[in-house]
């Protein structure tokens, strides 16, 4: 919930597109700010502050109904603009428009869902320009994002971002496959990698990539634990 004042405005990958099915929600964290990522039943992805204004419950614990997301505690329902539309305890009530949840700019590209952070920043920069890709897995690592980036560079990664706002991804070549890695800083000591590949990548290559992910996580965390 707290945010680092100095964090630059940027697009951050928060989930793989195929891990957030229509009608579902999940929680995540970017630079210590809790975010709910959800997809309405029409298929559009949303990233919001993960807190119901009523009692502070995490919206990611709640459930999606059509194009509304509802809080688990008391069922308050919010539409895609973040505005509360329905309070079950007072079904007759016309809900004041002031009850709403803050939203992040949200887009999908390269098989990932991206949020424009920090909260409240107007969307100024265009999202990363990535080809159509398919998510393989997200891997969560107990190490600073910089350390993981360093490990990726040893694997020959090439930062694909050309300015500060879309530097949160890189590419690594695994045999002949170009693997796109979205980098999400969760907190100072934790990060997530969202791994995506071209759609025609074989199952064998994807399995090798899963081994690679687990090895990377193990080696980086061992280094971090030894430090």
């Amino acid at each position: 919930m707290t945010q680092t004042g100095s964090a630059p405005s940027q697009w951050v990958p928060v989930a793989l597109s195929n891990m957030i099915e229509a009608g579902t929600s999940a929680g995540t964290v970017v630079n210590d700010a809790e975010i709910v990522v959800w997809r309405d039943t029409a298929g559009k992805a949303h990233a919001w502050e993960d807190r119901c204004p009523h009692r502070g419950m995490k919206m990611s614990f709640g459930f999606v109904r059509g194009d509304h997301i509802a809080c688990l505690y008391h069922g308050w329902e919010y539409d895609t603009s973040g505005t509360c539309q329905y309070v079950p305890a007072h079904p007759e009530l016309e809900v004041p428009k002031s009850i709403c949840i803050s939203r992040y700019g949200t887009t999908e590209t390269g098989g990932m869902i991206w949020a424009y952070t920090p909260l409240g920043t107007l969307e100024q920069d265009s999202p990363p320009d990535l080809p159509a890709l398919e998510g393989v897995r997200s891997v969560y690592i107990d190490a600073p994002v910089a350390q993981v980036s360093g490990a990726l560079e040893q694997h020959g990664s090439t930062p694909a971002g050309n300015n500060e706002t879309n530097s949160n991804f890189t590419t690594v070549k695994l045999e002949s496959t170009v693997v796109t890695v979205g980098l999400q800083q969760i907190s100072e000591g934790r990060c997530a990698l969202h791994i995506a590949v071209p759609q025609d990548t074989t199952i064998a290559t994807r399995e090798a990539l899963l081994d690679w992910c687990e090895d990377l996580r193990r080696s980086v965390e061992q280094l971090e634990a030894a430090a």
Partner: peptide, 19 residues
Amino acid sequence: CRDFNLDHDEFPAARLWAR
């Protein structure tokens, strides 16, 4: 596991499986 403050955030495949 949320009862002892372990969130589901880090386990996307298990989330889909649980559904």
